[in-house]
Design a protein around this nucleic acid. Structure first.
Lengths: 214, 214
DNA sequence: CCAAAAGTACACTAGCTAGTGTGCTTTTAG
DNA sequence: CTAAAAGCACACTAGCTAGTGTACTTTTGG
């Protein structure tokens, strides 16, 4: 949605082509989300991308291909964003509650909202010929979290016998619920999201924090 | 899916009509789930229901109406099932872990699987003119759970300052994750579901059980 | 400047689908 | 038995959409 149209100036022969391609994918993504796969006509996509229908077909061949490319792009963006959120927020030395809250909040508000994750779920539930890309998108980020949780357990901050399970529980309590909230009410009320995340982190820590030396 | 076709014998003038109607809704539900709203043609629905297309239109007028009626039916079934699961499994005297596990398992395996809840989510994410029925389906069961959790807190078994939040967390940790599992892998591996539920109940109790008089 | 690449405008096909009209047959109530 | 209700077979329209073919224009590298 927020992807730029990019490179209006002197694109060079190759870059111009890529620019159009990106514009088509932008338009397609928006329309697939808004209308669903079937209802988003190729004519509408072309119009929105300000490109001729013929160009669309020259680039992608058939409609299904457009859809797949959109999925790939969204998937890449999502995985990358979660990756960097883990690396930058879930740093070893930091206070656990603070780190987890920041991580959850960042994933939901920066990466996702009005976008990638929700987008992905909505899109994948549409098409009936999508290879198991859908599974992958939740598997990969979860593996990354799993590793961090294992490290935290080793460091004595967490008590997660099964880091994989802990990661799933964390995701369910924070990101999952936040996305649910975003999904049902479309009040992009950021305050509410923050509350949901904070509450989730709270419950998570009660269940998984090492019994304190109070 | 598992709804019976019902009343093959001497239906009476009225009952015969209702029988056909139900058969049409059964067929429509199955096809909407399998193919999505757009791709499930009225002809296909009629064929599957073993009914003439004309009869379909005589009963429902237009395709969108069929969809709405299907949603209503699924919604009613779901709410009813959760209701009775709460009343029959989450009984006051019972051991908490046992009760919660039985409840979660029942909701996922009896009510839902191969059906209502997943069905509902899949369906509602399809149509772009569904009034906020989608929200209602998660609101109602959650309110019911909330009440029980409040009672359990009053009885001293739970420590849920905000019973509504506790209910959301419980649902996310157990039912939500179980459905996720069912959704990605279609291995209807019941054993795995049971494990997921048990793990979720475990984490929930660690976060919400009253600090024990060990 | 020029040739090729990229893009455009537009007309056209082939197929599918929602919804209707109509006359015929079956079922059921009284 | 009979009339009406319910259902059926079938033909037909109107509209939309994926995808193609083609001749024309614009852009860009050398």
């Amino acid at each position: 949605m927020s992807r730029a149209i990019a490179a209006v100036q002197t694109p060079g022969r190759r870059r111009r082509s890529e620019g159009k391609k990106a514009a088509i994918l932008d338009a397609a993504e928006a329309l697939f989300i808004a209308e669903g796969y079937e209802r988003a006509s190729v004519d509408a996509i072309a119009a929105r991308a300000q490109v001729s229908k013929r160009t669309v077909y020259d680039h992608f061949g058939e409609k299904a291909t457009i859809f797949l490319k959109v999925l790939e792009r969204v998937n890449d963006a999502l995985v990358g964003a979660v990756q960097s959120a883990i690396e930058e927020e879930l740093t070893p030395g930091r206070d656990l509650r603070e780190a987890l809250t920041a991580f959850g909040r960042r994933v939901v508000t920066q990466t996702v909202p009005s976008s990638d994750y929700v987008t992905f779920r909505r899109l994948t539930s549409q098409h009936w010929a999508v290879p198991r890309l859908a599974g992958a998108v939740r598997e990969r980020p979860e593996r990354m979290l799993e590793e961090r949780f294992a490290a935290l357990t080793a460091g004595g901050e967490l008590m997660a016998a099964d880091p994989r399970l802990a990661a799933r529980h964390f995701t369910a309590l924070t990101i999952g619920l936040a996305l649910d909230t975003l999904d049902t009410q479309d009040s992009k009320d950021e305050a509410e999201i923050v509350t949901v995340i904070a509450d989730g982190v709270d419950a998570f820590l009660r269940a998984y924090r090492r019994p304190g030396p109070s």
